[in-house]
């Protein structure tokens, strides 16, 4: 089996967004989903375009132009879909994330994520500089 390139965190986010959105994965929807997944961090639309181009060059996703729609001023969407290589790269990343989760949950307990989501930057009363 060919070895896939390891993915950056933002690439993982976009691949997950494309996986979730399925047929409706295009610039604006991918940006919205990625922003939701990256919360509380901000995601810029420009960075989404750059990363989508890079993922396409790596052969992890492919794209096609859809039919023009009136809400876009009669302009087409560029729809993205995961390629087999992209699915495998995302699976590898998810498996690694799962192993990290198992280790952190063992040490910090399973509820640390809930606390972190409520107050990012705080952890067990300690301020992160």
């Amino acid at each position: 089996m060919a070895k896939t390139d390891s993915l950056g965190q933002f690439e993982q986010l976009l691949l997950t967004a494309i996986l979730t959105l399925r047929e409706d994965a295009y610039g604006v929807s991918i940006h919205a989903k990625a922003a939701e997944l990256a919360h509380p961090k901000d995601v810029s639309l420009g960075a989404v375009y750059v990363t989508l181009d890079r993922l396409e060059d790596k052969g992890l996703v492919s794209s096609r132009l859809s039919a023009p729609t009136p809400e876009r001023g009669g302009r087409a969407k560029r729809c993205y879909q995961l390629e087999a290589l992209g699915e495998r790269a995302l699976q590898e990343s998810a498996a690694t994330a799962k192993r990290i989760w198992d280790v952190t949950a063992e040490i910090w307990g399973k509820d640390w994520v809930k606390e972190w989501v409520k107050a990012p930057g705080k952890r067990w009363g300690k301020e992160i500089a």
Partner: peptide
Amino acid sequence: EEVLGDLHEKYTGPVQYIALAMCVVPFV
């Protein structure tokens, strides 16, 4: 085509449109 379409879809006003375009276009 697709970038202008996306900017059109996110349009709320001319100032917001220009600001968004200024953030997006250099990356593109």
